[in-house]
Design a protein around this nucleic acid. Structure first.
Lengths: 202, 202, 202, 202
DNA sequence: TATGAATGAGTCTTCATTCAT
DNA sequence: TATGAATGAAGACTCATTCAT
């Protein structure tokens, strides 16, 4: 009741959340500088001063979105780690599963992903962090004999991130492929390589 | 010579070239919006009106740099195609060679690369174009039996671009690895995959 | 008692008085423009709309403080005049006494004094008024033969106000000297002058 | 020639000086906060960006005026000290002379005086400094026997400053009296006191 | 060719003030 | 009486861009 047009006395938290949402959309779409505070508030049907009621300034709301991306990502990662080997009988299946989880997260948070994984100046730090974690996993699997002993795991992790990033922005977010398909594609390629094992060795 | 009557000792073309050079550096370093016309001309020890003597506006000089990147890239690609199979006895060697050429180009044009391959809104178009060309090559090689028949060449090409991009910005431009090493790394991983063929399967 | 049903435990008058008090402190400390309505209400643990329940606007509360200063000053002056010659056997003692009274008033109302005697645009009017009153007294005393006939009483009154103002803000309000001491200092200097009467006449 | 309406290419330094001049007038008249950058530039028939060509911000131009006041004051003081005893046969004459110089300076720089002696937050520091210098002089004169041994020179200096300030703003700047007259008034009062030496004592 | 001087247009930000409950 | 939520109005500042020489 009285929800008509959010007259004046909205919930406050609602306004804040709305601004965050619109801002995420705008930033993702136009980048930091091309996004004006005025367009954010217009999108939220609010006035400019209201913006400053909830955020110190334009930079602050961007940072909050960066952090939001990061926090949710961490949360997702943690959750993934809780229910691990259950449905993953093989190493490959486990890797696919993890990757699928990550991509699913991106898929569910397209704007945040564009912000935190592409626009943000901290994006590289985050990627580096992910790379290190992947490398850790790979090291373990190499030592367990699953992969070639001479594998440069750091390098593989870097490549993996590069692939993920590319496919995320080129296929996943535009909804051309789903998380599972992409995860399978990547892992298959990376594990099996391109060669035809049955026949030639060129 | 030619030092007569030119107050700043620079022919028009020289000033123009200087502006382009400084602009490339600034754009690469700070991005489009964070780069001010004022700082470009300051870097070139010229005045702001002079800038507009040579470029219609800020956007124009950026576009010119984008085009420069594209043109040089095409030129490079063409040159590569001229002397191909000569020193490339195997398919793998040929791919490594091509990749190395590309990375060498990036390495020699770090600022332009950052601009045309990352900052530019056309960057995606360029990448897509490269992807298509790679896919073409791969298709041929698959049909020639060098690679698995079931290979999704489009997807491989996308992954390749992703890897190239990541390693370019993370290893190549920061001079952590050279073109050859990176080319080998990538191709090796992509062709062979991660598995240890001698022992286990899975 | 009276604690029933009043959310913040304050009757209206209490809130109003509190706001006035805080405002006086803030204005005195930071001046008119540097004092924000928001900081006044924050200091009073009230909300901004409440402020406007008691005062038309920011200017109004400032004016009220100006008037408060003026009214209390007048009241003080009146009181002083009621019990005059009693304990003042000499003219000098009487002047000292009056001055001490004034300074005591300032001392007891430091914030109001800063507002009404310094910040207010009406400060000059008030000072002019005091000057006129002092001049009146001096004129009487001159005609009574207590002071030099050639004394420019207007000018002396102006000087006196200048001295009072300076010593009030530099010694009295910072509690470096008390009202009595300052009153004695001023009157002594003004009446006796700086010369050493015993010896030289230079 | 070509001085019509200061078309565009004025002297730069001229524009700057003009802005300073107008700003001094505005600040003196309306205070810091009531003075808008927009009104300063309007007064100078310039645009807002031009303002920022010459001054970092509003605060900066105010500070420059503060400093200007201070520097000119120091310069004036130094000059005064160069040609001292020449035309000052007596101590009193010398004090009158110095005071007249100071008041003349104020009179010639009314806007700067209002800024540096009243509006500026540094005004008190400056006054304190002047007080100390005056006190130094007085101490010397006391030790030389010109004034009463029991004179509280610090206090006298404070009073003197108070008188100067008051008479400057109430008589000098409004052109009701001139520097010489005021200087004589003050010194006469301060040295001689109010008493009638011929007749009564008390 | 080159520039000292200037500005139009726009953005962020703040503050006093009000609405609706 | 009191307030959470919201805003109109205005000012500071910046930047790409252009005169006039």
């Amino acid at each position: 009741m009285a929800e008509r047009g959010r007259p004046k006395g909205a919930s406050g938290e609602e306004s804040r959340a709305l601004l965050l949402e619109i801002a995420a959309k705008e930033f993702a779409q136009h980048g930091y500088h091309e996004t004006k505070v005025s367009s954010i508030v217009k999108g939220a049907s609010l006035s400019q001063p209201t913006f400053y009621l909830y955020f110190k300034n334009k930079e602050a709301i961007f940072e909050e979105l960066e952090n939001l991306f990061y926090l949710r990502l961490m949360e997702y990662a943690k959750k993934s780690r809780l229910q691990p080997q259950l449905e993953s009988p093989t190493v490959k299946a486990r890797i696919v599963h993890n990757l699928k989880e990550l991509l699913t997260f991106f898929c569910k948070n397209p704007n945040l992903t564009r912000i935190g994984f592409y626009l943000s100046t901290k994006a590289n730090d985050i990627k580096t962090q992910i790379v290190q974690q992947i490398k850790g996993n790979l090291d373990f699997e190499v030592s367990a004999g699953y992969f070639r002993k001479n594998l440069d795991t750091q390098m593989v992790a870097e490549c993996l991130i590069g692939m993920i990033e590319r496919l995320t922005f080129i296929q996943l977010l535009p909804k051309k492929k789903g998380p599972e398909e992409i995860a399978n594609d990547i892992v298959d390629l990376l594990i099996e390589g391109m060669l035809d094992r049955e026949n030639n060795r060129k």
